[in-house]
């Protein structure tokens, strides 16, 4: 029972990480109609930068702030230099060009940091555990990630639903011509939205650094899971991204933790040993296929698309 709760919390923690990635990506899809495979590169950069800045400055929060700002700046630069020309292109061009960007960023990271994985450290005061319920202890840092993730979700909700920028974002996601008819500087709006997405990806990466290994390819691994989140949630929908992320995070984490022991109760232990991990690794994709079968537009299709 204790283990179930701990794994459920891990599921939420993975879920909010996925959400931070998915929120930015789904807005970029919804508003600019851009498939950006390089979104994962920003996640990777966030993780590498935070680890390095912490090592150099010795201050955890300074490192996080610096990493966030640098990721944001890199994101905006990428938008200005490369992606801007892609908005009017077809999806194939976008996929290929951003694939090219991934190769570039991965190799740049290899040049700067080398190919071996690095392990981001935590300050001592964050390495402890907290008591979530009587008798149940949970790593403080992971709990913090959950809190930050949910906080960002709330802020994002307020931004999208309560501000003028948010109004434009929502309008842009459903009707681009209308927004430009309002006399809004579309280019600036795009850059802002992309920067926001980049910052969120960087935040996800820098928080994930101390939990997972920081290595080349980490961005693409999570990116594809984020695609599953977006397909399940519905393109362009923040709500869909949140629900999809939590569902995928939970299903994936719990599947990996409990599928093998559960199967062992009905199958022979050796069969469970081989089927369990295999099934756990494909669980979220099966979930995606099932959702698509019943709801081809995802759970929360953005209006009028």
């Amino acid at each position: 029972m204790l283990l179930v709760l701990e794994q459920a919390l891990n599921g939420v923690q993975f879920g909010v990480t996925l959400f931070l990635m998915a929120a930015g990506l789904t807005l970029v899809f919804g508003i600019m109609n851009l498939v950006n495979l390089a979104h994962g590169a920003l996640y990777m950069l966030g993780a590498y930068l935070a680890a390095t800045f912490y090592q150099r400055t010795g201050s955890f929060f300074t490192a996080l702030a610096l990493a966030l700002v640098v990721t944001l700046v890199i994101g905006i630069l990428v938008e200005l230099v490369a992606l801007r020309t892609l908005y009017e292109r077809d999806h194939l061009d976008q996929v290929l060009a951003t694939f090219g960007l991934i190769l570039f960023f991965n190799e740049m990271v290899a040049i700067v940091w080398g190919r071996a994985a690095i392990y981001a450290k935590l300050p001592a005061w964050l390495s402890g555990h907290i008591q979530v319920l009587p008798g149940i202890r949970y790593p403080l840092y992971r709990a913090l990630v959950i809190v930050v993730g949910l906080l960002v979700a709330v802020l994002l909700w307020l931004l999208v639903n309560r501000t003028r920028l948010g109004m434009l974002i929502r309008a842009g996601a459903s009707n681009r011509t209308m927004v430009s008819a309002l006399g809004v500087n579309i280019r600036l709006l795009y850059t802002l939205v992309f920067g926001l997405g980049a910052a969120l990806a960087g935040l996800a990466g820098l928080m994930a650094g101390p939990i997972y290994a920081v290595q080349i390819g980490m961005g693409e691994e999570i990116l594809i899971q984020v695609f599953v989140v977006i397909v399940i949630g519905g393109i362009g929908s923040i709500k869909g991204a949140l629900v999809g992320a939590l569902v995928v995070g939970m299903v994936d984490t719990l599947g990996r933790a409990f599928l093998r022991p559960t199967l062992a109760t009905v199958l022979s232990p050796s069969a469970a040993d081989s089927a369990g991990p295999a099934l756990a690794s494909v669980l979220i994709y099966i979930l995606m296929a099932a959702v698509l079968f019943f709801r081809p537009q995802g759970l929360f299709p953005a209006a009028s698309r």
Binding site: V35, H91, F227, P277, S281, V282, A289, L292
Partner: peptide
């Protein structure tokens, strides 16, 4: 059954699913 961005993401996701499957079958 889908098109555009969905199609790209789904074909990618299914291929990755098979990749992970290959990784997990000892």
């Amino acid at each position: 059954r889908t098109s555009g961005v969905y199609f790209i993401m789904i074909t990618l996701a299914f291929a990755q699913m098979l990749y992970y499957l290959g990784n997990s079958v000892e």
